[in-house]
């Protein structure tokens, strides 16, 4: 919070005839990127290694946390509430200050890049909420996803529509008018429009019905089988582990268990403390 905010407190911010809180941003868009460095031999495709840090000047939320995804695989981050799952993903995406550790993508050290530049470097990120442009049509949402591209985007557009036939039918409709599941599809589609090298999803199934959730998972598997690595934070740990090639269980911002989904599902401790039986 800035001094200016503290000075006025919450005054006047209720008056809709003078202020418009709708769609306000929280990311500092003015932070400049540093330079990138070389990766390390034997790295996975994307790795956030030994990350420690927190938001702003706040206390550390992550403690020596490592998350990685290999090409063509699905990696999921699971854990109890408040374990720092989303924070870990945001750390990989450059949205918090890392005190220690590094993020490397496809043989490049991108620790110093800001989020915008990480998108350009090949990361596709789908936030948990506010992940579409509600007053714009589905097609415009997808076009905005491809904003940084200067080539012909029609082919990618068709691929996204093939992947999500339900939203293809509504391409002229405002995205804000769609159902929850369809909005998530638009959100994922928007991220795919940059033709990313890795897709990062922050709780894509939050707040959708079980049937829609299954369908979304199907789509995500299809994306991964198409060769695009997927990193995903998930609340529904059981379903997530079933489709995961690799799963990270975080507890209090640190790695507690790591393994393939099947291994962890078979792990007694994970089952007892975390999966509830």
């Amino acid at each position: 919070m800035s001094d200016q905010d503290q000075a006025f407190g919450n005054r006047g911010n209720r008056d809709a005839s003078v202020v418009n809180p709708h769609g306000r941003g929280t990311i500092d868009g003015t932070r400049r990127s540093g330079s990138t460095g070389p990766g390390r031999a034997g790295d996975p495709f994307l790795i956030g290694e030994a990350m420690s840090g927190g938001y702003g000047r706040g206390p550390d939320i992550l403690h020596d946390c490592t998350i990685a995804v290999e090409k063509g695989q699905i990696a999921v981050i699971v854990g109890p509430n408040g374990a720092g799952k989303s924070t870990a993903m945001k750390a990989i995406f450059g949205m918090l200050n890392l005190r220690q550790g590094s993020v490397r993508l496809n043989g490049r050290d991108i620790t110093a890049l800001n989020p915008q530049d990480r998108v350009k470097a090949g990361m596709g990120f789908v936030p948990q909420v506010h992940n579409i442009f509600p007053s714009m049509t589905v097609e415009e949402n997808l076009e905005m996803g491809a904003f940084i591209r200067n080539d012909d985007i029609r082919q990618t557009l068709e691929q996204v529509y093939d992947l999500f036939p339900a939203v293809a039918e509504k391409r002229r409709q405002a995205a804000g008018e769609l159902s929850g599941g369809q909005r998530q599809q638009v959100a994922v589609g928007r991220a795919l429009m940059t033709r990313p090298q890795v897709l990062m999803l922050d709780e894509p199934t939050a707040g959708v019905s079980p049937i829609v959730m299954d369908e979304l998972f199907d789509r995500i598997i299809a994306i991964a089988r198409g060769g695009l690595p997927v990193l995903m934070v998930e609340q529904n740990a059981q379903q997530a582990m079933m489709i995961a090639d690799k799963a990270y269980v975080l507890v209090q911002g640190a790695n507690a268990h790591t393994g393939t989904g099947k291994e962890l599902m078979a792990n007694d401790e994970v089952r007892r403390t975390f999966l509830g039986g």
Binding site: G23, G25, I27, Q116, H130, F133, P134, E140, I148
Partner: peptide, 25 residues
Amino acid sequence: TKSGKAMRAYSDNEDLALLSGIDPE
């Protein structure tokens, strides 16, 4: 136009516009 749509996108959702590569300034 692309710039006009970028303006609408920014109005809708500042953060997502930034992450889509739209320059807020």
